[in-house]
Amino acid sequence: MKTMLRAAVAGVSLLLGVGTALAEGELQIYNWGNYTSPELVKKFEEKYKVKVSITDYDSNDTALAKVRAGGTGFDIAIPSGNFLPVWISEGLILEARPDQMENFKNLREDFVNPPFDPGRHYSVPWLWGTYGVAVNTKHYSGDIDTWKVIFDPPDELKGKINIVPEMGDAIYAAMTYTGGTYCSGDKEMLKKARDVLLAAKPHWMSMEYATQEPMVKGDMLATSDWNGSVLRQRLVNPDIRYGFPREGTFIWQDTVVILKEAKNVENAKLFINFIMDPENAAMNSAFARYANAINGSEPFMPEDMKGAPELGLPDFMKGKTIFSVACPPDVVELYTKIWTDVMK
């Protein structure tokens, strides 16, 4: 069975001109921490007799800086989609043509043509999610589908609010809340966003990444957060709900790419094809608690994630989401100034 499978894989890759070598050896993956399912890795290792090694990073900026500096020894990296144009223009990524791989047909149609990689010549989605708010509804039963929870909070929540200090995301939220366009350098819009941030800050308790423990225990009553994180919180504390800000939000996705300096390109290609298999994609989701973009993975998802309200998009959000983008350098400079002003 195994040999047949291998022969099949080899045959397919030969057919597609992807490469010939039977994959044996190793594979170095550079991914966000606690984001790679160990079962998935084990399955891949056993199937292709490849030793996989995972190394973590904690931010897109660190990952970009390191890969750009070179000499890292990684084959695969998993940067966020909005960073991808930089990775591509800096010449860090191999044009591996995942769109010609066998399992590419499983990819959800709305993910085939993202603005940052039209036609998927470089990347495939790893997992995706939305950005919104988490609220402990035991203490506040009002409307939670709005950024108002963070920027103009009700009395019940004041002083118990957190905002995740991801500069771009926080300013995105403030811009959207004040009716601005994200990545715009328009002074009027920026001023409104800054004023909202400054006015809201006294009501915040903290600006912290680690939301799980304090939310679950009730030290925090509301926070801006990513959907999978809120799913984790709700599974422990059922009072916690995820709010979709109707003013608008973005969809982010982390994407799998092969680095130009990769030494194990064939194994890397096998891995990319491997994770587009529905069952494997579900394993990934089950571990990281975020949705994948692979059709047919639903039957393999764990029970507590099937139909989870956090993972989809409700009807009222139709047309109110954008794919997350990276802003141009001069705009980032303005944002950094505002951010420093807010946090001084």
Partner: peptide, 22 residues
């Protein structure tokens, strides 16, 4: 983690420039 990070310290300020501030 303990102070809530609402106010930048020197370390965070420099970190911001090398990281998100680019």
């Amino acid at each position: 983690v303990l102070g809530g990070g609402k106010n930048l310290m020197l370390g965070n300020l420099i970190d911001l420039q090398f990281g998100q501030g680019k």
